[in-house]
Nucleic acid binder design. Sequence first.
DNA 1: TTTCATGTAACTTCAATTATTACGAATCGA
DNA 2: TCGATTCGTAATAATTGAAGTTACATGAAA
Lengths: 144, 144
Amino acid sequence: MKKDSRLSSVLHALLHMAERDEPLTSDELALCMHTNPVVVRRTMGYLRDAGIVSSARGHAGGWAITADLKTVTLRQLHETLGEPAIFAIGNKQEMPECLVEQAVNAALDTAFAEAEALLLDRFAHVTLADLAEDFARRHRLRSH
Amino acid sequence: MKKDSRLSSVLHALLHMAERDEPLTSDELALCMHTNPVVVRRTMGYLRDAGIVSSARGHAGGWAITADLKTVTLRQLHETLGEPAIFAIGNKQEMPECLVEQAVNAALDTAFAEAEALLLDRFAHVTLADLAEDFARRHRLRSH
DNA sequence: TTTCATGTAACTTCAATTATTACGAATCGA
DNA sequence: TCGATTCGTAATAATTGAAGTTACATGAAA
């Protein structure tokens, strides 16, 4: 399957929105994200429903951040996107009768659960404000 | 994307092979793994090339384990299968020019790298012998 | 009222695993 | 040697889910 890049995409969009005061249109976001306006609306729709951004139609419409950058974590965004599957590797069958396969699943599930817990914990400790700050740092560095 | 279940599949196959002394044919393995004999040959071929199993044609042919169960780890099997992608989530672009996207990628890459390191470390500490033992334990439990 | 912009449904494209078909090659028993 | 068995492998289709596209309805502002 193709990799899910929605989290990456919304982060990119949110940071660009944080850099500007006026709303950004789906077309503008699609341009800098190298994607399609409809995909932007579809994906950002999750964040609107969660109250993280607002959308407005008509003249001077578009997308804007409503939440505080310091309170929005990567984990929250991941959940807002519907908690898509993290791993591209998995069990052949989830509920096998075969005892051998049950032992295999148990071992793999344990390892995956630990890795997932670590990943989500890291996600929980990174906010949009952190990313904005890191971007600012990179911007200063490039200017020299 | 469809999940990669090759690691799960070969583990299942290897433990069944460990339970028997004669070689198992691709057809037999395919039956208990709920898949296709050609898929079995293709997947087990990686393990044969790595010297973990042997295959023989003709009468009384089939697949057998050649390695010591105590020395084969899940990590080794993962590597033998060509280190397939672990995550179903990823960056939109790997080498973006945009500084904003670079900051996003850096944050995500760090988290994914840590989670991957943990997963592979767990994989490195589980051997086929461990799984065989866990299966035996489950077997005893069910008998009571 | 015209223009701009989102909201959404429907469909296609894309990428990667898995499944299937077909046939060649090797091995062993009779 | 013949023939059944079994792996080896190429070629192709099916499957799955994200991403892309087209089309059009809806709503807001100049």
